[in-house]
Simulated assay, not measured.
Amino acid sequence: MTSRRNLSTVALTGLAPTVWGSTYLITTELLPPDRPLLATTMRALPGGLFLLALGRKLPVGAWWLRALVLGVLNIGAFNFLLFVAAYRLPGGIAAVIMSAQPMFVVILAALFLGERVRGVHALACALGAGGVALLVFKGKVSLDAVGVLAAVGGALCMASGITLTKRWGRPEGVSLLTFTGWQLTAGGLVLLPFWLSLEDMPDGLTGDNVLGFAYLISLGAVLSYIVWFRGIGLLPATAVSFLALGSPVVATLLGYLFKDQTLSLLQLLGIVVIFLAVVLGQSRPPRKEPGAAPPEPLTSGTGARALEEERSG
């Protein structure tokens, strides 16, 4: 029963990167052109404010700062750096660099969550990076220092966001919807001044634009981040980090289906290698023998509750 429940949690959490993989297609086909900051701000802020209005609960005490930090790492800074890297690094190099994110999580989880660095996770990191390279790398290397730094920064932001979300958990009495609303709102508010100062307003919105924004707000932000943060609370941080590798796979498949892009044998091999990396990344350490010293307790919140549920299961 426990393994079946774990598999369903993995599958549900993996839906978030699946949806995020469609963002590129939605942005290029339905949204106003050359407005990446508008797209990311609109993706986060309206949905966050909606969830805040629905939950009617604001952070208390230390959670004002924590919500801001998580919102910046998971949403605001991550999305901003992702778009900077994508615009300045051609040929899928940004995706290759971003695939280092699980490796960062493995290190951070060992330092701050007490998760052991295991050989299977090192192998999964190598397979994930190699699979993404096969999937998206076009052989034209044109490195831009700002783009490389942005890609590395984006990977570190996502890794740090996963780790801190797992470490801090969710405060008692706060619903998952409200917790997600805090982060989306914080991330959107951080992006807002960058959008207003760096981009012009579009002349008008078409029906396709409205449809694209509706998709990004509902599926691309609200629903996807709800299942993502739920997964972080229930799964090991390293296991969640490898699920993010599904995003470039979905983006590539959608490009092939809807934009007449090619899908070579090497790319198909890359998809298989990425899938293997994700599967290996879900492996857990063997159960400790009776009498072994218990692990360090997590901080109060959903992280601790999830651990207790896993033990009782």
Rank of each mutant, 00 (worst) to 15 (best):
S247C: 10
V278W: 00
P286H: 12
V273G: 05
G233E: 15
L298R: 01
I274E: 00
L269F: 11
V272Q: 01
L253H: 09
L268A: 07
L269N: 08
T299K: 00
G281M: 05
L257Y: 10
L280C: 03
R284D: 08
Q282L: 04
S247W: 01
L266N: 12
K288M: 07
Q267S: 09
L266Q: 12
L269I: 07
V272K: 02
L269E: 09
L254V: 10
L298I: 01
I271R: 01
G255K: 13
L298H: 01
S241R: 02
E296L: 01
V272I: 14
G281W: 09
L269C: 13
T299H: 05
G291A: 11
S300C: 00
P294E: 11
P285F: 10
A277N: 03
L269V: 09
P294Y: 10
L235P: 04
A292H: 14
V279F: 08
P290S: 14
F275L: 13
A244L: 13
V272E: 02
S247G: 08
L257Q: 06
L298N: 02
T299M: 07
L268R: 09
G233C: 00
S247Y: 03
L269T: 15
S247Q: 15
L245D: 11
A293R: 15
Q261C: 03
G246Y: 09
G291S: 11
G255V: 10
L243D: 07
F258N: 06
L235Q: 09
P297E: 02
S300H: 04
L234I: 05
L254Y: 14
K259G: 04
Y256H: 15
V249F: 05
K259Y: 09
V278E: 02
T299Q: 00
L268C: 13
K259T: 13
G291E: 06
G281I: 08
F258P: 04
L243F: 06
A277S: 13
A244P: 00
A293H: 11
P297V: 04
T299V: 10
T299I: 10
L266T: 08
S264M: 02
A293D: 14
G270E: 05
L257F: 14
V273A: 02
A237P: 03
A292Y: 13
L257G: 12
G281P: 06
P297T: 01
R284E: 15
G291W: 12
L276F: 07
R284H: 05
G291H: 11
Y256Q: 10
A244C: 06
S300L: 09
A244T: 14
V279T: 12
P294W: 03
P297F: 00
I271F: 04
